[in-house]
């Protein structure tokens, strides 16, 4: 057990951001600003993907940084700094989403897609050749809707895996799950995404599996 702790501590110390955080802990001037500068883009982006609202995403990212600062004296490098930061961020996002569930709020997608739901819209676009008609912005909206339609845990796992490039073990640590749980979560999330975006997967003109299987070998 001790050996494992020592190993993870050594691994953590190899993380340059852990070293910056240790400087923050020592109240070294400028260290915290350095940390904010390094992580603000990533943290705001992740928060935005999870929450969907730019202003709220910034507020939550800011709160995450402040929590890091408040907790600096208790900081012990046990894993990568980003894992710790995104654990805090995930907790904040989760609380925010839960409090939002208590109040009826419109989903976090731009209104340009009109009044139709994503599924209805995709069905309509499928019929009229969506690959050519859907613009990049509209596609982004649809993808964002598909992401938003995932349940909270699936969305977190997807965002961390896709945009933070976290492996299953890191996601498990952030979300308080086992790696097996993350594997299952991501599998279901990707099935759901594929179902929601089925009409757009082969929009670049590449042959869909059906067409491919019809070809002579």
């Amino acid at each position: 057990m001790t050996a494992i702790s020592e190993t993870s501590a050594q691994m953590a110390l190899r993380d340059p951001d852990v070293r910056v955080m240790l400087r923050v802990r020592a109240d070294e001037p400028g260290a915290f600003a350095e940390l904010v500068g390094q992580y603000q883009h990533r943290l705001v982006a992740v928060m935005h993907h999870l929450i969907g609202d730019a202003t709220e995403a910034e507020d939550l990212a800011q709160e995450a940084f402040l929590r890091v600062y408040r907790a600096r004296k208790k900081y012990r490098p046990r894993s990568k700094f980003s894992t710790w930061l995104f654990t805090i961020a995930n907790n904040l996002a989760r609380n925010s989403l839960r409090s939002r569930q208590r109040k009826p709020v419109t989903p976090f997608v731009s209104s340009e897609s009109g009044s139709m739901g994503p599924h209805e819209q995709m069905v309509k676009d499928n019929r009229s050749g969506p690959m050519q008609k859907v613009q990049r912005k509209e596609l982004a909206d649809l993808i964002q809707e598909a992401l938003a339609a995932l349940n909270e845990r699936q969305r977190v796992a997807v965002v961390l895996n896709k945009f933070e490039d976290m492996n299953y073990a890191e996601i498990a640590e952030v979300m308080g799950l086992t790696t097996k749980g993350v594997k299952s979560l991501l599998s279901r999330a990707r099935m759901n995404l594929r179902a929601a975006l089925a009409g757009y997967v082969y929009m670049d003109g590449a042959p869909a599996p059906e067409e491919e299987s019809e070809r002579p070998v």
């Binding site: 603000q40 800011q62 993808i143 990707r190 997967v201």
Partner: peptide, 22 residues
Amino acid sequence: RTWGLLDYLPKPEPSPSFTHRT
């Protein structure tokens, strides 16, 4: 390919005053 579609999502950026405000 579905996973690749997520690359179409815009990358949200913090406002210029973010660091200062934090």
